[in-house]
Design a protein around this nucleic acid. Sequence first.
DNA 1: AATCAATGTGGAACCGATTCCCTATAAAGC
DNA 2: GCTTTATAGGGAATCGGTTCCACATTGATT
Lengths: 330, 330
Amino acid sequence: MATIRDISEKAGVAKSTVSRYLNNGYVSQATREKIEKTIEELEYVPNSYAQNLRLESNPTIGVIIPRFDSYSVITTLQGIDKELKQLQYNILIENTDRSPEREIEYLKRLAKMKVSGIIFLATKLTEEHIHTIESIEVPVIVIGQEDRRLNCIVYKDYEAAFELAEYLTAYDFNKIAYLGVDEEDEAVGVLRKKGFVECFMKEGQERLSIYYTDFSIEKSIHKTRELLNEIKPDLLICATDNIAIGAMKSIYEKKLRIPEDISVTGFGDYQISSYLTPALTTVHYDYNKAGHIAAKSIVRMKGQKFHPTTTYVDYQVLPKNSIDKAKRKR
Amino acid sequence: MATIRDISEKAGVAKSTVSRYLNNGYVSQATREKIEKTIEELEYVPNSYAQNLRLESNPTIGVIIPRFDSYSVITTLQGIDKELKQLQYNILIENTDRSPEREIEYLKRLAKMKVSGIIFLATKLTEEHIHTIESIEVPVIVIGQEDRRLNCIVYKDYEAAFELAEYLTAYDFNKIAYLGVDEEDEAVGVLRKKGFVECFMKEGQERLSIYYTDFSIEKSIHKTRELLNEIKPDLLICATDNIAIGAMKSIYEKKLRIPEDISVTGFGDYQISSYLTPALTTVHYDYNKAGHIAAKSIVRMKGQKFHPTTTYVDYQVLPKNSIDKAKRKR
DNA sequence: AATCAATGTGGAACCGATTCCCTATAAAGC
DNA sequence: GCTTTATAGGGAATCGGTTCCACATTGATT
């Protein structure tokens, strides 16, 4: 592996001259050609570690994700990636496989690598997370969970759930079931459920049976099977689109029709949801935009003094055919 | 940002002693405690660039992917990630957005960063790709496309298509349509189509109408609409599962039933496919396993002399309910 | 002709770690 | 009590670049 010194010796010039040549410094035509030729011959490639050693930070943003196999994660990642490419930043992705310890570890590791900033797609914020984020010198933006001490980009889960519930109260449903996830996840487990429950309570509609599953389609299939054996809802509200997909599978298995026998709603608007038959009524979150915002902000935060802010990303209720139009109240 | 020198000065010892402390060298109990305390106080974190500058290579594998929003890419990535975590390697992901120029650029960039190896999820291999791969000093494994000069892990597209076609010839179909992609993509565009065509030809079944679309669900919806306006097939073979998902949407739009009116097949076994109603008959590829194999091999290749090999990853035809069982020949 | 500015180049310091080699001190052996 | 041997720690070189500073050469200005 050739170094800048090999080049300088072979070309008969000083290291500094070669370096100047490489970094748009002024070099005479004659030496320029000599250096050019030698670099070609020796297939010289500068060593990035040596280059970065001089810099206090480099144009790289670290992104910590909990998993790869999630529509929201991937879509956010795409938004981040696109924006960062435009801003001429590199991206460094670390997958934690939903392990909180790894999250802490990667926050520290990225700080040690002196990235310019970190975008952290969080599923849960413990005190240890917050302490780590505050202790490292690198700016961090959290997506998906909220804490007033940090810079967060969050989805309006409560409001969105409330609005979807409001939309649903325009229909005549007798028995409503809610299939959610446990409260470990603040945004999905707590806020979404709260939005639904409070809206229905306000409307005097209290027949809401609540069931729990996890984020997988597989588990949702099983839980829906159990649910349908116990009760016979005419509306099934699911906390995510994946849960809705599993639920739909089970509903069809039981030879029930959607939406004639059961209406179904999802949450999050995964790409596939609009291609299902019937298309799934859901809440659209602009994950891509969240990624863009995060990328832009993290680059802007570089060198600025820190003060916590929370940015809310808008949502949109998307009515589709998985709701029985015949049940609409006049 | 504290450096090892700050620590050594504040603790009243030499840099080398601090370094020894950090790297499990022998240090007396007294100095050990002094250093420990100073490191705490100054929140010292070693600079990775300085550390790496000494090393000739570091335990990092670069992975070049064409896009994030693809089931096969993400699943392969998961396999790679898991295996590399186990082998204590870091992973560095670069997304090219299907740009061949970026692919070349990233191959070079990763080589410059002295990663131990590169896993390249390719969509097409040009001569420039091959030249670049051969010229860099870092070992490269290509997944998804084949060239006898390189190390490749490929899916048996031709054989798999042939076998799925063979399975289909056990049924009585009158009019078969094939919805594929253009021949830019060697594996999907050429080999899969060839497998189907040759099998059907062998069976004397020549009524195969061929249509083209791209990899998106959206485009497939449009193309299937057009297709259904022109002909009325009772079997629609799709070159990927996403194409099949779009096709199914269009078929339902036309109030046709699957599989009673039209049977449908996909290719690739995306997770969602088995949760559709009806579940999609498809070919299962073990992307995850391909990722594992790639990760294991690339680590093993480190330091070894290069000789090209091609590894074939197995497939499995998965019959599901999107084929009309009533049409089965006795 | 003398002074000054512009241009091109070389030398050396530096970035922050690791590591080799050498020395000072204390403990052990004779 | 003197030599030998561990043990601990310091000094300096090194990795491969970048950058500051000094100096030489040339051409322009007065």
